[in-house]
Design a protein around this nucleic acid. Structure first.
Lengths: 224, 224
DNA sequence: CGGTTGTATGACAGTTGCGTGACAAAATCG
DNA sequence: CGATTTTGTCACGCAACTGTCATACAACCG
């Protein structure tokens, strides 16, 4: 059974979408605001998310950005505006598809299916990454040092995964901001701080790190 | 660099798409029939495929199905028909996205990017440049001498990479200033100093260098 | 050979980049 | 709601790096 979350402030449209999707065999749930949607997705992750761009409070773009930061779920934008700028901006923010209202439910369903096929392929079992005493299992969301679990926060974990995924290669602060945070305000110190915190947890001697190495002027990298 | 293959039988449209995509920074290639496209993809796989639905011989749907059987490349349909049935059928066949002509190139580009984000490769091969005992790995931001890591500064590293990239060829001080520093105040001594520092680190006998050679009156070059 | 030009190098001061602790805002949890 | 954790921002200090200069040295040329 596939779960779909619909984030749309217009009650009538949301209801119509939910009913139509239910008819197509999905298990559905709805949210009227971005905040509510983000919360629901955190509580009980759906397999697909539909989001309107025009939302009260946090708008759709911001909603997408935030959700993308903590979840890899396929996100489809359903908007009334058929505007290239909106489309580009939404995809930039991390959306996977963009549909213009009114949507044909069959098309929507087909697009959801295509997206899930991709998502599944991308989420193939990721083996545990090992760096000496350090083990990272992206799937389990777990970090171990000499067999012992290390409590890391979400950002630290994402940062570590990003570095681990490109082990041995330098990643600039800019790249890390882009990939871990999803945005780049230009404040590179943000990365430093989190790298520092990560070192406190995973390095024997945070003063002279063995794994999470600084390359002055270039960025950071993770080595074995 | 991202490669895109466009399968479209209308010469004018294909050309227009190819030019526009090239303008966006993609490396492009085109095919006029499904058969040709499948062959090209087999020969030299692109990172994205655009396909028209109305093709002579094998139609777009069949083209998608076959390509999907042997390749996991993201496929985008670009069709003149804005018909739910076509859209559903194309997605069923294995397409990842569907755009209706005429397409906004910016939107297309954004959608391609969104698709690739999902299919981002974990580790690309890391090319390492070797000069006898000396190894330079631009990706890892690392220089090794006889297997041992040599600590080089950012400018030294850039300088070395620049020389390595044009191995065996003389680079004048002005060229190096321009390429490594990005500006040229006319002070050629600056290059000398950094070359000297580099030699201290990578040459066995910095007095009579084997790799980083001076060509009096011309500049420097890196030899094997 | 001496003069001239081009290159090597050590020293030094100014600058840059990084690590860190402190703190406030925001998110999360009970 | 209040308590706790997490996150982002800031400022400061240290260490590393950079560019400049002066001097010494080497190569070239007549």
């Amino acid at each position: 059974m596939t779960d779909v979350l619909v984030i749309e402030d217009d009650d009538r449209i949301r209801l119509a979408l939910l009913l139509a999707l239910e008819d197509e065999g999905y298990r559905v749930r709805g949210a009227a605001t971005a905040e509510e949607g983000l919360l629901m997705q955190r509580r009980e992750p759906a397999d697909n998310v539909l989001v309107d761009l025009m939302l009260p409070g946090l708008d759709g773009f911001e909603c997408i950005r935030r959700m993308r930061r903590e979840d890899d779920v396929p996100i489809v934008v359903v908007s009334a505006r058929d505007d290239t700028h909106d489309i580009v901006a939404a995809l930039e923010a991390g959306a996977d598809d963009y549909l213009v209202k009114p949507v044909a439910i069959k098309e929507l369903s087909a697009r959801l299916r295509a997206l899930r096929r991709r998502a599944r392929a991308a989420t193939d079992p990721v083996p545990v990454l090992t760096f000496g005493q350090l083990e990272i299992s992206p799937d389990a969301g777990e970090v171990r040092l000499a067999g012992r679990p290390v409590p890391v926060t979400r950002t630290e974990f994402r940062l570590l995964c990003e570095l681990a995924e490109h082990a041995g290669r330098v990643l600039s602060r800019h790249q890390l901001l882009q990939r871990v945070w999803g945005y780049d305000t230009g404040d590179e110190r943000l990365v430093d701080v989190h790298v520092g915190r990560l070192r406190q947890k995973i390095e024997d001697d945070p003063g002279s790190p063995r794994h999470l190495v600084t390359l002055r002027g270039l960025g950071y990298k993770l080595t074995r």
